[in-house]
Amino acid sequence: MTSTGPDETREAGTGRFRGRRMMVTGGSRGLGEHIVRLLLSEGAKVATCARKQEPLEALRRSISSPEALFAQTLDVSVPELLERFVDDAATALGGLDGVVACAGSARGRGIDEATAQDWSATWEMNVGHAARLVASSAPHLREAGGGPVVVVASISGWKPGPQAQYGAAKAAQIHMVSSLARELAVDGIRVNAVSPGSMLIPGKRWDRMRREDPVAFDRFRAEFPGGDLVQPEEVADVIAFLLSEESRGVTGTNIPVDKGQNAPTPDGY
């Protein structure tokens, strides 16, 4: 089973998010792009951001309702830029009804090689970005009477694998979600995490392995009981559920979307 990229046919959805105002960080490629397209297909107005302008422009050109998309280029690990984006997005959309912290990345190698800067950058891109996104969007969600927040974590947050700095940051995100869900419940704000397994995204690591080293890829597939890696649209569907009214009784939890994956990387452990 292979992924063919975001399914643009989903632009004719059920309309369950019609009139809702959603924000997704890191929405120009990969999982973030799938989330943005799904929300747009269901009638939402969406704000998103990415480091580079061209992928955002390509996204805008490919959708049927470009006026429903607000996009900015920025580095979400820079606090003042992220906070400004949140306020600009809320102004452009007329408020916020839901937020997804999707942007994330890792730096550095193993413990003998990873620098203090690698650890700090990995933390800021994952935990720092998600925390500031929640803090800066909370006032807008309160104005809307509450709303859902979803933090994209990873199975690496509780299934050990290299590198430690990434797993530690993802574990921190999962714990942070459970704490913030209690803190913000009084305001009607729900906070949940989704932890994807290894996703087969065109052009990314596992897709390159599938094409360039099929023997290694087949070994990696053995980590999945069903033999197939996770598809990004499968993760996007769960995130959309957590943003919807159908999940109004769900908060403070972490939902794995990993097809029962064992080790989070081919490097094991």
Rank of each mutant, 00 (worst) to 15 (best):
L200R: 08
E54R: 05
P232H: 04
P6D: 03
V78I: 14
A68L: 05
V230D: 15
R29L: 06
V215C: 05
E8L: 12
R210T: 01
H175L: 15
G26V: 12
L200G: 06
G26I: 02
A164F: 12
V235E: 11
T14M: 13
D88C: 10
A101W: 11
A236D: 08
T91H: 13
G167C: 00
G188D: 05
D237L: 00
P256V: 01
R107F: 14
V238A: 08
G5I: 09
E212Q: 01
Q231C: 11
C49V: 13
S28C: 12
R51N: 09
V250Q: 12
G252P: 00
E234H: 00
F224T: 10
D258G: 04
I201T: 12
S62M: 11
L69P: 01
G94S: 06
D97A: 08
A114K: 00
S64V: 02
A168Q: 09
A92S: 10
Q231Y: 00
D213W: 02
R132A: 08
S179Y: 14
T9K: 06
R132W: 11
V257Y: 06
V152T: 11
D97M: 15
D237C: 04
M176D: 02
L242W: 03
E67A: 04
E223S: 14
A90W: 10
V191K: 12
G30F: 08
L200W: 03
